[in-house]
Amino acid sequence: MSRAATDQLIAALAQDARPVAPVHSLRWEVAAVAAVTSALSFALLEERGLRPPGLELLRGPTPFALVAFGLALAGFGAVTAALAFARPGQERTGWRAVTATVLGLLVSVGAASLVLLRSPLGSEAVWGGLLELPCVLVSIALSVPATLFVTYLAASTAPIRPRATAFLASCGATALGTFAAHLTCRTPGAWHVVTTHAATPLLGGFLLAVPALRLLRSRARSA
């Protein structure tokens, strides 16, 4: 390509300089996602009620609050990372958010695993998927609106790393969906929490990443 072609390109781009509205701030977008997921969580809580027999905080058969905190941290971390990676120049924020995501997952998996390891051998029932599957399906179903919303927001910016954005968006949305499911889940035991609640964000991340990537690319093309 010649330098003259670059000159022509600059002239053509300058001619095409229509006014554009700058994107919303990252904080605004994360707050919007938080509003959507909170509304979903409250709706689910209204429908199913808080997990009986009430909050078992840091102690008890499952570390309910610690797992919930880990899931929320992982969810908001991944969503923030997805939105930051869709904004050129905000990679540092994106990597910090990825660190928060990993930390959140480690907290939720680690807390439940520690309880599982400390419980007497054979005391944990292995349900053979009968109780795990509905919980996973509910979590993933709850994550679909948030995945769509985060993908829409990312596509409206400038997703220069579409694969990472799609994976993080779906992973974060599933973590937030699982958070809502965890608040209302009636299945007891650390085994269930480890295999279902803590692992679902990654599973959902992989399952929803492909449609999210397609959506991201098609929207980014049409924008």
């Binding site: 700058p22 994107v23 869709a86 400038a158 220069i160």
Partner: peptide, 9 residues
Amino acid sequence: HRARHSYRS
């Protein structure tokens, strides 16, 4: 040019 809306002043 395509991403110019993603810049915040």
